[in-house]
Design a protein around this nucleic acid. Structure first.
Length: 505
RNA sequence: GGCGCCGUGGCCAAGUGGUAAGGCAAGGGUCUGCAAAACCCUUAUACGUCGGUUCGAGUCCGACCGGUGCCUCCA
């Protein structure tokens, strides 16, 4: 039984869908006025894991996430950069979506934009006005929070206390300081749309109500977003939506993810600790970043620091190398052993399900991977193909849920720049007194893989003749360009790793 | 001021009543020409402080200390 933490009730509760076998989820996306940061990436990844787990449980998932592509910040930024507001927002949307791809975030059902749903927004504001929840002023249309008696139920705030404690608002026309804009009338030169109140644009909040109701229908299953959206954004969404439809609840389960923090402080631009997601993904593999994101409960703050990222990288490499080991066992013949692989698998499966059922406890889910791979490595000589295949099947299930789509693949592409470095290493060998004789006639026109195998052959000759000084020169030289040699009973194996230099470029 | 969250061994991090998962780091070992990788073992009087409830609390209650979030734009 899957249990999720609902911000509204402040309790873990059984997940119950509106419609049998389907999950309708809406996750608040970003306002594309600048490069997206690491926090946006985390948010996307944690909801992606939920999405994947729902599918694992057999649900059809209708998952959408919006872009609020018209807003004061977008207008301001577009003016600064002398761009059309749409060019600006779509540019940052595209960059963000590219980052999501690197993070293996599944393509969503749709990514609705506020500007594509202006008519629905206007209709909703009109209806709120007709029902007496909204009023027009000289600069826009506002929602009257006092008219909605449940105001504050999500964030557990008392409306009277908030009003008395509210900061002075410069807008004298608002009935209450907490009233918020549903529609903003356009000033000269601003992007705008025709409406019953003249030219203008949507306020913040209303687009999410309009789009979630339009595409998912009232009373949908999951509404998510960062916990900084609880108030006022989601509180206002509830107020607008329930006032408009007259029905409760607007949403069945309210889920919120914790912020990414730096030195315990929330990541934000004003504090100058803003980290661009795209830059991080140049330094670290997307799946490593993903592991970093899900190593902590989605509800807790996640500290962003190099140590944690390096730990994720190290652990990811362990998973990856171990999984490759498992794959070598798939074609293994029957071996004599009393190894009870199946009871181990049963135990892991159950542990994984229990962890994920407990509000998506990915920390525990990951610990199961450590269990599994330690078992594989420790018993690599005793697992036969039947056992290996069974473990492999479970691995694939788990990777699918956690989103490790390329775990075990060779990540470093054997591109031309890599070959250049390899040739450079070989050139160094050609002038190294210890090994140069062997590299005199080296054929550099071979394929990369053949070059490496050729080097292994040369090195083997040195090793066979106990010239370890020479073999170490070769091993160290290649390790510098990211080819790591490992001498095993069955000959020398190599693996390709990203070097520090490459990572820092 | 209002509403929250967090404080677990050197570091990261699970754990909502029964006596502390997992990872990293550290030490020792197996293997190896040496490494690397892998595995085995070890380590630690780790639950912010002080009270309370309970047969029993990291886990519930209270107070306090420290950190932090929302209340203004914010994933």
């Amino acid at each position: 039984m899957l249990r999720v933490y609902n911000t509204m009730t402040r309790k873990l509760e059984e997940f119950t869908p509106r419609e049998k076998g389907k999950v309708y989820m809406y996750v608040c996306g970003l306002t594309p006025y600048d490069y997206s940061h690491v926090g946006h990436g985390r948010s996307a990844v944690v909801y992606d894991v939920m999405h994947r787990y729902f599918e694992c449980l057999g649900y059809e998932v209708i998952h959408i996430s919006n872009f609020t592509d018209i807003d004061d910040r977008i207008i301001k930024r577009a003016q600064e950069l002398n761009l059309n507001f749409r060019e600006l927002s779509e540019k940052f949307v595209a960059i963000f979506l590219k980052s999501l791809e690197a993070l293996n975030v599944k393509k969503l059902f749709m990514y609705p934009r506020a500007t594509e749903n202006i008519q629905e927004i206007i209709d909703m504001v009109k209806e709120l006005e007709e029902k007496g929840f909204a009023y027009e002023t000289s600069d826009g249309v506002y929602f009257s929070v006092r008219k909605f008696k449940d105001y504050g139920k999500l964030s557990h705030r008392n409306i009277e206390e908030m009003i008395s404690g509210a900061r002075v608002d410069v807008n004298e026309e608002k009935h209450d300081p907490l009233d918020f804009a549903l529609w903003k009338k356009a000033k000269e030169g601003e992007p705008s749309w025709e409406s019953p109140w003249g030219l203008g644009r949507p306020g913040w909040h209303i687009e999410c109500s309009a789009m979630s109701l339009k595409y998912l229908g009232n009373g949908f299953d999951i509404h998510g977003g960062g916990d900084d959206l609880i108030f006022p954004h989601h509180e206002n969404e509830i107020a607008q939506s329930e006032a408009c439809t007259g029905e409760v609840p607007f949403v069945r389960h309210w889920l919120h993810n914790g912020m990414v923090v730096i030195e315990k402080e929330k990541m934000s631009k004003s504090l100058k600790n803003f980290f661009v997601l795209g830059n991080l993904l140049q330094d670290y593999d997307g799946e490593v970043v993903r592991l970093f994101f899900i190593s902590v409960s989605y509800r807790k703050p996640l500290n962003f620091d190099v140590e944690s990222l390096e730990l994720a990288r190290k652990n990811y490499t362990y998973f990856s190398e171990s999984y490759k080991t498992l794959k070598t066992l798939l074609e293994r013949n029957k071996v004599n052993s009393a190894l009870d692989v199946h009871s181990a698998i049963t135990k892991w499966k159950e542990a994984f399900t229990n962890a994920m059922d407990d509000d998506f406890n990915t920390s525990v889910a990951i610990s199961i991977l450590f269990d599994m791979f330690r078992y594989v490595n420790a018993n690599r000589d005793r697992i036969d193909s039947v056992g290996a295949k069974a473990i492999d099947a479970l691995c694939k299930d788990i990777f699918l849920v956690l989103g490790f789509d390329h775990l075990g693949d060779d990540k470093v592409s054997l591109d031309s720049s890599f070959k250049k470095e390899l040739i450079k290493a070989i050139n160094d060998f050609k002038v190294n007194d210890i090994v140069k004789e062997s590299f005199k006639d080296f054929n550099e026109n071979l394929e990369i893989v053949d070059i490496i195998n050729e080097i292994i052959k040369i090195r083997k000759a040195f090793r066979d003749s106990k010239n370890f000084k020479a073999s170490d020169v070769i091993r160290n030289g290649l390790s510098d360009v990211g080819v790591v040699f490992e001498d095993t009973k069955n000959g020398t194996k190599y693996k390709l790793v990203m070097t520090n230099e490459k990572r820092e470029e």
